[in-house]
Design a protein around this nucleic acid. Structure first.
Lengths: 336, 336
DNA sequence: CCATGATTTGTTACAGGTAACATTACCATA
DNA sequence: TATGGTAATGTTACCTGTAACAAATCATGG
């Protein structure tokens, strides 16, 4: 019955036990199942817990059982609507299951990705949801050594570390390009920002569709983040490089909306003069005038599925399907 | 020299030590400062660490030193651009300082807030950044017992638990309303969603401004989340309840943009027929046609300052200023 | 060549909760 | 009353990294 709490630090089970006059084991039993202690103690312990404001400490559990009940989620960015919706999907599943989400982002830098994964692992996360398909050897080594389930999201093509859930970005871009061509567009320019794996795949899809129709692709690209103003800048560049541009396909809705507004300001009629299409189908693209043509992707479902499969793996089930390819669909809108 | 790693779990310091033939204490010394072990050992340890792919474990530290190097951030929502930018500001400061951000959200539910705070504390976070100004007694008790620095963000008015950093939402709403009135608007309707503390303050600011000018306030409200479509719905309601409505002030940009698009679709000229103003000044409001009038708030700076003050407190400094009131400013745009 | 001090490595204990095992208390029945 | 059995509670050890202290090793100068 050693007493601690000399320096008014946060109360421990021992403090509660001291107050009641039992050992901390008894209090621990009460916490897991109140019926495992005698009725009079139940009351006294319950009162003591309340009085002290006891908050459990997960560290001992992580230490002795390697179970943190935390899931690490590592995404390129948090200020991107796409990932915000993925996160919502993930939490929809993890939170009711009693898992805490530890969120981190790496700003599209492979170096930062390594350090973020190390940090998440150092907190003993029970599983990881990461994005992108390409990872450095050090990342692969860390993940293999950690021995926890890992799910990659966003893209469904590359061979996954263990399991991938996403869409076929290349096919989606091909489909939208093909659709614009069928609508009579010939000089379609692709706007690409943030040259990550998925953007490269989309560019490939666009270029393939153009070439399959004997058209010449033209892709404007930058490594910086996409934004509405970047869309406007790209529009100016495109018209300079190819004055008879009649279509614009953007790697995301932000660029597309920026380009569309720039057209409105410049007196260019959309879609009569130029067609514009985006990617992802954010709320705003479904509300604006004119409605934006875009590729609708199942972002929230992607997160939900990733979390569900992770939980299943944590329950000991094996990987059921290495690659889960989710459907996308084209929203025609009024801008094509 | 007891050997573990029988069940190929993640390697510990002991495993590294066994491989080198020293005690784990020696390896621990190397990790903190390589020069504290002899040069030949430096090499051997370094190789062993690499071979095994050792990843440190923070649990013992949390246990014995109550230092997790993690900061809990609790916000109402993550799928809201406002909070995404706050988070970016926070991470801009915390990440270089070696702190991991543990993000959680509670969907505007006080009950969920309690449980999220308990969870964050159970992971031994070193400090907390939370939002809103009203908290239940249980939350206040938990925070006081935890004995860690807490900073409240978003609003600068209510008496903080320890320290608050935000803007004066009521004054901001008053200023924008006053401005619209000066521009000749008389029948201004307020659109409010997600009735949290800050929204109530903004409504109060709007109502005060209207009354000070002998105008009758009319506020449309709902508890559901704001969205572009909600803005459109509200517009219809407003015109029905008050056909000669000549101004709309929205609690955020999403509602304002939704209302603006709905006007465009309905052939209502903005701002000739109706003025529209939003709140927060998101990227899109600065790019769209017409440019949206809005209240520009220092969201990223708010996060940055909160993190900086938290770090200062973690270094032992006292609270320097209980309430830090950040400036906002009005963006006139083209919609008023 | 030994004493002295500096450098390097080892030993022990601790943080908080819980599994596994040990003990005590209590009641019912022979 | 003794015995058996169950219910209630206590004891010990463990998980990992490191502070604090202890011991061993080495180099240097008298």
């Amino acid at each position: 019955m050693k007493s601690s709490n000399l320096k008014n630090k946060r109360p421990t089970l021992q403090d509660v036990a001291d107050l009641v006059g039992v050992t901390k084991m008894t209090v621990s039993r009460f916490l897991k199942n109140p019926d495992r202690v005698s009725p009079p103690l139940q009351l006294k312990i319950s009162v003591a817990l309340d009085n002290l404001g006891y908050i459990p400490n997960r560290a001992p559990d992580i230490l002795s059982k390697s179970k943190s009940h935390a899931i690490g989620v590592l995404l390129p960015s948090l200020t991107n609507q796409v990932f915000a919706e993925v996160i919502r999907g993930i939490e929809t599943v993890l939170e009711p299951a009693g898992y805490q989400t530890m969120l981190a982002h790496y700003g599209y830098s492979k170096e930062a990705e390594e350090s973020r994964i190390a940090t998440l692992l150092s907190y003993g996360v029970d599983g990881l949801i990461i994005s992108e398909s390409y990872h450095t050897d050090r990342v692969r080594k860390m993940l293999s050594v950690a021995g926890i389930p890992v799910i990659e999201i966003m893209d469904s093509v590359s061979p996954p570390i263990e399991q991938a859930i996403g869409i076929d970005n290349q096919a989606a871009a091909y489909a939208m390009t093909e659709f614009m061509i069928q609508r009579g567009r010939q000089k379609i320019v692709y706007f690409a920002a943030r040259m990550d794996q998925r953007t490269l795949l989309k560019i490939k899809g666009y270029e393939n569709a153009m070439q399959d129709n004997d058209l010449t692709p033209l892709c404007l690209r930058t490594n910086s983040a996409s934004s509405f103003t970047l869309g406007a800048t790209f529009l100016k560049d495109a018209l300079q490089q190819q004055p008879d541009t009649d279509g614009i396909f953007c790697t995301n809705d932000d660029l597309a909306i920026g380009a569309l507004y720039a057209c409105q300001k410049a007196g260019i009629n959309v879609p009569q003069d130029i067609s514009i299409a985006g990617f992802h189908g954010h709320d705003i693209s479904r509300a604006m005038v004119p409605l934006l043509a875009t590729v609708i992707t199942p972002r929230e479902e992607m997160g939900r599925l990733a979390a569900e499969h992770l939980l299943s793996r944590l329950q000991g089930n094996p990987v059921s399907q290495r690659i889960i390819d989710l459907p996308f669909h084209l929203e025609v809108g009024e801008s094509i």
